[in-house]
């Protein structure tokens, strides 16, 4: 009778193992455990029980482990960990360029601040670290800058929804960069070519100093113009720069992405689309909120339900998920293991 009770208890312990493993080894293991226990025992030996639970759970966790990551993700992450910080440096000074309906062009709503320039310099340093393959330094830098942005977002969101919209796309981009820097730790990928790095850096630098030019902090600008004609030409130049620089940056980045191998390119596109969609969505949401006061002349876009922080949060997650799903199944998991859980030659 005691043997039956003991056997039942051991069977319960064996339930810690996956069914396939139990089917292959369960009866045999039970025989060994029962033989080791000896007669007249009603309870499993504590050491034996702990061992069965631990090895069983380890087996389950091992079988639940996801398939190894496609190396193309690491290579794509290596590229994203360089171009991402360059874009962040470009937009570090101004919170968000938004379509300002009065001028019909793109305009920054913040003047160049000292702290903004420091942040731009730090993002540039992260990009350089990524280029030089000082991957741990790049990771540490992007972690620190992301933490700073999250702090800023938490503070700003409490003040007004515009701050949330203006900062959320930056937090998403910083999170993507940090994730990329982490993935890139083991990447063997040769990074951007020097021409691409130089071109993006120059455009980023110009974008970073643009608000300072616009507000007359760096050059006299429109504010210091002697005549209306001169002021008008300054404004035209600014409008041109506001349109040309982001377009130039986007063009260089697209060329960089297009020159990658197919698997790396598609993964880079998934990351870029998630970041760009968040940027565009936040821009639309924020500009709607900003134009409420001008509702007479320019009907506002909102605020509507789609301008709520919850929707802004959902946009990048959805875009990334859809992007990953759109990768062909073969691309997603080329290294899927055979069902390693089932021992070879197992007997049911």
């Amino acid at each position: 009778m005691s043997q039956e009770i003991l056997e039942r208890r051991y069977r319960r312990l064996l339930a810690c193992y996956p069914a396939a493993y139990r089917a292959a080894y369960g009866e045999e293991m039970l025989a060994v455990a029962m033989a080791a226990a000896g007669p007249d025992r009603r309870w499993p030996d504590p050491g034996e029980a702990a061992d069965l639970i631990l090895t069983g759970l380890r087996r389950r966790l091992g079988s639940a482990r996801p398939a190894p990551l496609n190396p193309a993700w690491r290579d794509a992450a290596g590229i994203a960990a360089v171009i991402g910080p360059i874009v962040m440096a470009a937009f570090a000074v101004a919170p968000l360029p938004a379509p300002f309906r009065g001028t019909g062009g793109w305009q920054y709503f913040a003047s160049a601040s000292f702290s903004g320039i420091i942040v731009a310099a730090l993002w540039s340093a992260v990009a350089v670290a990524g280029m030089l393959r000082w991957r741990r330094l790049a990771l540490a830098g992007s972690c620190a800058l992301s933490a700073g942005l999250i702090y800023e977002l938490a503070r700003g969101a409490a003040r007004d929804p515009y701050e949330f919209g203006a900062l959320w796309w930056k937090v998403v981009s910083a999170a993507l960069i940090t994730g990329s820097a982490l993935l890139a730790l083991k990447s063997k990928q040769r990074l951007l070519s020097w021409w691409a790095a130089t071109a993006t850096a120059v455009i980023a630098m110009l974008l970073a100093v643009l608000p300072a030019i616009q507000n007359g902090q760096l050059l006299p600008g429109a504010a210091g113009a002697a005549s209306f004609t001169e002021m008008n030409s300054y404004l035209q130049l600014q409008t041109l720069l506001h349109r040309a620089l982001p377009a130039g940056l986007a063009l260089v980045l697209l060329v960089v992405v297009a020159r990658q191998k197919a698997g790396v390119r598609s993964r880079l596109m998934v990351m870029l689309v998630a970041a760009a969609a968040t940027f565009a969505f936040d821009l639309a949401a924020v500009s709607g909120i900003l134009t409420i006061e001008d509702a007479v002349n320019y009907p506002p876009l909102g605020p509507g339900w789609w301008q709520s922080p919850a929707v802004m949060v959902a946009v990048p997650v959805l875009c990334f998920a859809v992007g990953v799903i759109c990768l062909t199944p073969d691309e997603r998991r080329p290294h899927r293991r055979d069902s390693a859980d089932v021992p070879r030659g197992g007997m049911a």
């Binding site: 080894y25 293991m29 060994v32 080791a36 061992d51 639970i53 380890r58 087996r59 021992p343």
Partner: peptide
């Protein structure tokens, strides 16, 4: 050797 460890090794 406990049973769980033994079969992990055998596997």
């Amino acid at each position: 050797l406990h049973t769980g460890t033994l079969y992990a090794i055998l596997d």
